[in-house]
Amino acid sequence: MKSETSVQQQSKHEQLGLTHHQVIDMYRYMRMARLYDERSLILQRAGKINFHVSGIGQETAQVAAAFALDREKDFFLPYYRDYGFVLAAGMTLKDLMLSVFAKAEDPNSGGRQMPGHFGSKRLRIVTGSSPVTTQVPHAVGFALAAKMQKKDFVSFVTFGEGSSNQGDFHEGCNFAGVHKLPVILMCENNQYAISVPVHKQLGGKVADRALGYGFPGIQVDGNDALEVYRVVKEARERAIRGEGPTLIEAMMYRLSPHSTSDNDMAYRTKEEVEENRKKDGVLKFKNYLIEHGIWTEEQEAELVAELTKEMKEATEYGDNAPFPKPEDTLLHVYAGDGEVKA
């Protein structure tokens, strides 16, 4: 009992092995993702960009998960709302702005894909598409490669609860379960598949499905950064020990409409959204930091000013960067396309 008492004197993040500096860094990425998302919505409404798909309300779990992984060696297969995740994995605001403006220098796709379709071999962020959940078998393929090549990385894949109904989710989970592969599957259960609420999508819990595939399934409060960090870290340790996959269902709420083409007031109420806004994990984490005396409103103001400046520069850079050449549409269908022929 004594040792327990002494442990309790440590704050939760310290118990998890996170330094003050690290949790402040986590918070910084959450704020960065939120600001990016809000800015992109405004840019679309102002007619500067054509489309934005939002992840507001999901940043907490995304960033916490990224911090629990090895960002030097793991492979990441995020889905289209994972701005917090990819920023924490090394993508910059400038990179994201180049994507949202569909410019040639966009590292995700050279301006080819819609925003939110991430990819960077350098950062081990695996290129993704729009048909949902196709990335789950890919993540299993990376994990299979890790096992075959005896490498100590894991693959980490995210998707929504709507996506968890696709065959590729089940086929990928089963394959990973059979071979006990080092893959972490994190469902970002944001309560809506565009307009369809979770009770019309799921008859049970996503996490419970893991039982049928022979590995643990854990439901976690996605607005609780440190809890998400803990379960992803444990999942990674299991994976590295050769004990196989883990399915994590992070519970959260999509605070913004599905995309800039969606009017969410057609299927949910302002009251419901406001009720969930009070549970916002970013705010909750900020309060946690303040309560533990490692963050102040002054620091908050400085951070927001710094990020706003960075955002402004990134936006200007993205806006002013050149578009791809029209004829570059023809490049990179196969290897060697576009190379100067001798």
Binding site: F75, V126, T127, T134, V136, P137, H138, A139, V140, G141, F142, A143, L144, A145, M148, Q149, S155, G167, D168, E171, G172, N174, F175, V178
Partner: peptide, 23 residues
């Protein structure tokens, strides 16, 4: 020998190929 699931056979192979395997 894989489970009976063609989308996983193709999808897992695609993932492994992106890593650098030759499935």
């Amino acid at each position: 020998d894989t489970p009976l699931s063609e989308s996983a056979i193709a999808g897992v192979a695609i993932g492994a190929a992106m890593y650098g395997m030759k499935p």
